[in-house]
């Protein structure tokens, strides 16, 4: 690598650190503006419309001290469903990518699934399953799985032909092609999918819990809303935003480790 290229990497790494500091600064400013707006608005409207930031903070403290079980239940459901959808979706995507016989049938199934609204799955799950855990797992899996399957399939379709020809020149088995070429190639696609769906999955698990479970953040938010505790609804909302940010950070960390081979590209 040339010195110029090395300088480029160093500059980009430095640029990345500056950007991260800038992101935190911007986030702090936006949060302060939101809190200030809440404070001002809460002075003019009743508490059940807009509680003050102090009331929301108190509700938040109450959640952190008394309701962590619900948070853990939600996070557990979310992670389990994400993990299962990832594994099953990637396997389906792999089969779609390598088997021309099965591909049209699986693709048809996945495309039909993407066309079914989340609400339909939620309502059907309530009818079909008694156990709330099964209901939520079923709903999340059917919503998330197509994303992984389709993106994995797209990743396989995007395999450079040059690399396929190269590995074929060693006359590998199909399993070896998957192991040495396809699997590492689709890692960025899996991580990108996870990054994209983690926020959506958080919203869906809350929605599913609201309708189909008695334990979890969704059910607690429903309870707070029905008893006019808007400060608790707000506190749960802030907590969910923090949870989503934490999950995004975890996925970004995984991305940094798994894709350390990939040079950071920046456009001037």
């Amino acid at each position: 690598m040339t010195d110029r290229a090395m300088e480029g990497f160093a500059a980009r790494a430095s640029h990345g650190r500056v950007a991260a500091v800038g992101d935190v600064g911007a986030m702090t400013i936006v949060v302060i503006i939101i809190l200030a707006t809440m404070h001002v608005v809460s002075g003019f409207v009743p508490d059940y419309i807009m509680p003050s930031p102090v009331a929301v903070a108190k509700a938040g403290w109450k959640i952190l001290t008394n309701d962590m079980l619900h948070v853990m239940a939600t996070v557990g459901r979310l992670l389990l469903a994400l993990l299962f959808s990832m594994i099953a979706g990637v396997l389906i995507g792999l089969v779609m990518g390598v088997s021309t016989t099965v591909r049209p049938f699986l693709r048809a199934l996945v495309v039909i699934d993407t066309g079914i609204p989340a609400l339909s799955w939620i309502l059907l799950a309530v009818f079909w399953f008694k156990d709330p855990e099964v209901r939520i797992f079923f709903i999340l899996t059917l919503i998330l799985l197509p994303f992984y399957a389709l993106n994995t399939y797209d990743g396989i379709r995007a395999l450079p032909k040059d690399l396929v020809d190269m590995i074929e020149s060693f006359r590998p088995s199909r399993w070896q092609v998957v192991r040495y070429l396809i699997a590492p190639h689709i890692v960025p696609y899996i991580l990108l999918t996870t990054k994209s769906v983690v926020g959506y999955a958080t919203r869906m698990v809350i929605f599913a819990e609201l309708v189909a479970a008695a334990v979890g953040v969704g059910s607690r938010m429903g309870l707070a809303q029905s008893s006019f505790h808007i400060d608790e609804v707000m506190a749960w909302t802030f907590l969910l935003v923090l949870l989503n940010m934490a999950l995004q950070l975890v996925v970004s960390g995984c991305e940094k480790v798994a894709l350390k081979w990939r040079p950071e590209a920046s456009v001037r």
Partner: peptide
């Protein structure tokens, strides 16, 4: 095709290296 496994190797016009390795 498989009978020539390990008996033939190809070097291409471009390096065709796997970037993650």
């Amino acid at each position: 095709f498989k009978a020539l496994r390990g008996r033939m190797a190809v070097s291409f016009q471009t390096d065709r290296l796997l970037p993650w390795r």
